[in-house]
Design a binder for these strands. Structure first.
Length: 527
DNA sequence: TACATACAC
DNA sequence: CATGGTGTATGTA
């Protein structure tokens, strides 16, 4: 896992590749087919009864699994299944027949572990947050909110000024990237459920990085512990990671991107944004034709397939990628009507930046699809922060950034490790030295130093704590990292830990500082 | 600034 | 038996 690819500086340690959204979100966005479609009824909002089984199961099932409303959805299940098979008859991973069973198995296997208990705690915290929001709502629900409607509608007008429909943005995502690369070398793996793994973690197989589409049919996904995957699919074939191979394949893919947008922005080894507006001026081809050409070239170069989304901005392009994966693409025309039609029926979970928790919160406020945001706008304006609210409004309007740029300014750098539970002073300080050394090495290779030092610890109970201190000057040496991190650790003792990490932020280049660690400020004159 | 959370990959 | 690592943003005190 040691990559020194400077090009990948900020990506080099990404282990888990893209989430398996196919398996997940099929059913959860389907309530829009139900009678709940249409304007969310503001009076239907009721206090959340914390259904531990339901929310916890979803939480345990992993980051990419969205809510399954067992009560409401059970009824819809056959219908949804029919629809999915009708619209996506051959897509692997869409086979969600056993989704409830998968979550059940994960739940049963996890039950009682420290991890589980911690998840339960986090889940309860979210329920508490939701109830607080709902009681806030109770107090305002009878207000007319006419002022708020006016404010929000003005806001919408302002946001409309941000809208730029003149760019053609493409989001490209390699299909089951690591698994597909492995299948090139070992074609027999294509027909068996297979995963790549990493993280020896504390024992056993470790955490899974990616799975092929055969494995996804069993509910096996990235970021799942190996032993649970084996429970779901005992015949699972587990393959070790070969990062150099993935980087090699990625370089070939990127050389194709380069031809269409020299400023393309890679998000990981297997994913990137391109702005093909300029390229389109050099050809008679339409945007989707160009993207077919790009995917074609990728295939010829690597024998790997990619999926793509084409739209007016990055958010929409990313959402479009999801529509026809794997090995497909979707073009959303840059017309207001088309954009609205595309966005409205989508589950809010499809909005990049809306995860499990936000989905739960919004669902509690009767916002299930992007369309629901609009009728609820005055209420949401009252209940959410300005930033969160504007974020939702932009999503609803289909407004997003069109800036595709590979420039990157790092804001922090860190090293963290998980290990078998440690509690003796000696062991803990030895670990800390080890981590400080790794961080010092990274700082060295990137020529960085910084003055805010953070310590992260995860107790054996999975409780996470972070402690930070801003120092008078910049540091980068192992001894300094170790010294200040030790001071922070000291105050936490005694503890039994399963993880330790050190982070350095408020960074600057070592070239910019003098011997005292004081940042040398460029003399700015007005002459 | 310090800390906890949420999210992406 | 057993649940990762790196980085960003945001809310809150």
């Amino acid at each position: 896992m040691d990559h020194h690819d400077e090009d990948d500086a900020h990506l080099s340690s990404q282990i888990v590749e893209e989430e398996d959204l196919l398996f997940d979100d099929g059913p959860s966005e389907q309530p829009s087919l139900d009678e709940t479609t249409g304007n969310a009824d503001i009076d239907k909002i009721t206090a959340q009864h914390s259904d531990i089984d339901e929310t916890l199961r979803v939480r345990l099932a992993g980051p990419s699994t969205s809510k399954v409303n067992y009560h409401a959805l059970q009824r819809l299940f056959t219908f949804i299944e029919f629809l999915i098979n009708y619209y996506f008859p051959i897509q692997a991973g869409m086979d969600s027949v056993d989704k409830a069973k998968v979550n059940e198995i994960i739940y049963e296997v996890s039950k009682g572990s420290s991890f589980f208990e911690n998840e339960r705690k986090k889940d309860n915290a979210v329920t508490g947050r939701i109830n607080a929001l709902l009681s806030k709502y109770e107090r305002i629900k009878n207000d007319v909110l006419s002022e708020e409607f006016i404010i929000v509608d003005n806001m919408i007008e302002e946001l409309e000024d941000e809208r730029d429909l003149n760019q053609c943005i493409v989001h490209i995502d390699m299909d089951a990237f690591y698994a597909s690369v492995e299948e090139l070398d070992q074609p027999h793996l294509k027909t068996v459920p297979m995963v790549s793994f990493a993280f020896q973690a504390v024992g056993g197989i470790g955490m899974l990085c990616t799975s092929n589409y055969e494995a996804r049919k069993f509910g096996v996904r990235s970021a799942m512990p190996g032993y649970i995957a084996l429970k779901l699919c005992p015949q699972l074939k587990i393959v070790p990671l070969n990062f150099s191979k993935y980087r090699e394949a990625s370089a070939k893919v990127r050389s194709v991107f380069e031809q269409y947008d020299p400023h393309y922005c890679p998000m990981s080894l297997d994913e990137a944004y391109l702005n093909i507006t300029e390229h389109l001026k050099t050809t008679n081809k339409s945007p989707p034709e160009v993207v077919v050409e790009i995917r074609d070239k990728i295939f010829k170069e690597t024998l790997l397939t990619a999926s793509a989304g084409i739209a007016a901005n990055k958010m929409l392009a990313k959402m479009c990628t999801d529509v026809n994966k794997p090995n497909g693409q979707f073009y959303l025309k840059s017309e207001l009507a088309d954009i609205q039609e595309f966005i409205n029926p989508l589950s809010i979970r499809k909005i990049p930046g809306v995860g499990r928790v936000t989905e739960r919160v919004l669902n509690a406020l009767n916002v299930n699809t992007c369309k629901d945001i609009y009728p609820q706008r005055a209420m949401l304006y009252k209940l959410l922060s300005d930033i969160s609210f504007k974020f939702l409004l932009r999503a609803h309007l289909g407004i997003g950034s069109t800036s595709v740029d590979s420039e990157y300014v790092r804001k922090s750098i860190s090293v963290e490790r998980t290990f078998r539970s440690l509690s003796s002073r000696t062991d803990l300080y030895f670990k800390l030295k080890d981590i400080a050394q790794k961080l010092a090495k990274d700082l060295e290779s990137k020529n960085l130093c910084g003055k805010t030092l953070g310590l992260k610890i995860k107790l054996t109970s999975f409780e996470v704590r972070t402690r930070a201190k801003t120092l008078p000057g910049n540091i980068y040496k192992q001894e300094d990292l170790e010294k200040y991190a030790s001071q922070l650790l000291e105050k936490e003792l005694p503890v039994s830990l399963r993880l330790m990490g050190i982070r350095l932020s408020s960074l600057c280049s070592r070239d910019e500082i003098d011997q005292k660690g004081v940042k040398r400020v460029g003399i700015c004159t007005i002459f």
